[in-house]
Nucleic acid binder design. Sequence first.
DNA 1: TAAGGTACTCACCTTTTGGTAAGTTATAGG
DNA 2: CCTATAACTTACCAAAAGGTGAGTACCTTA
Lengths: 133, 133
Amino acid sequence: METTAWPASLPADLRAHLPEGLADGVFPAGCPSRTVLDHITSKWGVLILLALSEGEQRWSELRRRAEGISEKMLAQTLKTLERDGLVLRKAQAVIPPRVDYSLTERGYELSGLLVPLVTWAYNNADEILNGQR
Amino acid sequence: METTAWPASLPADLRAHLPEGLADGVFPAGCPSRTVLDHITSKWGVLILLALSEGEQRWSELRRRAEGISEKMLAQTLKTLERDGLVLRKAQAVIPPRVDYSLTERGYELSGLLVPLVTWAYNNADEILNGQR
DNA sequence: TAAGGTACTCACCTTTTGGTAAGTTATAGG
DNA sequence: CCTATAACTTACCAAAAGGTGAGTACCTTA
């Protein structure tokens, strides 16, 4: 019996490799990385991170870009990402208020990995969804 | 005022780039890529895709690897991924049943993007979660 | 005086997600 | 004949995620 499921046409060394702790493709149930992964792969998390990958933006700008997000969810998502040290919040004490959001260095690092994923989803979405009877 | 939020130390050409349709970092609300993204970034989707990135596996093996998953969720997640053409299901008509799951070529492509993301989450999880007062 | 702009929070309710436990199938082994 | 096995499905319930609409603060402009 085969021990691998890779398409024969793909050389084995094209396989991306998991780190030691995930050697057999498992996250232990209580693993902190599951929490982090949940934050960044949350419904709106990806979208906000992506929007911010284009540069610093204000609250209202983010709202517009993440089309369909509610104010509640925007606030919640930004708070989580800020706590995680991925997003930087700069508030100015002016009236009306002005708050600028941007990616931290860590957030930038992450968005570099998210962009290819999202691009892939964007490019493959139609084929994936149409190929279903 | 600054038009970019990138750390000054990072040259602009290191920025990953979004495709045309996402030029301003937005998914239109009804965009099919949002659906696809929801599937693959679902709580268990990433984990299953990741487990399968190590090769063909049986139902019970997957259950063990995605620690904490319920049978219901495993079935549901696999069904979605199969419908999306990311996972291949090979059932043998024997008793007791034997079913092998593997990644399709498309699924393999995707897992190549997921692995760096998950590796990053794994490596940064402790720092992220500890840096919170 | 009144309305508008910005960045929120809050309370309430609905929808979605996920877990639990039981049932199913057909055969092989004791 | 009873039990175990693998890969499920189903019904029911709890929890979490998410939406809605209102409220708030303070100043500016009409």
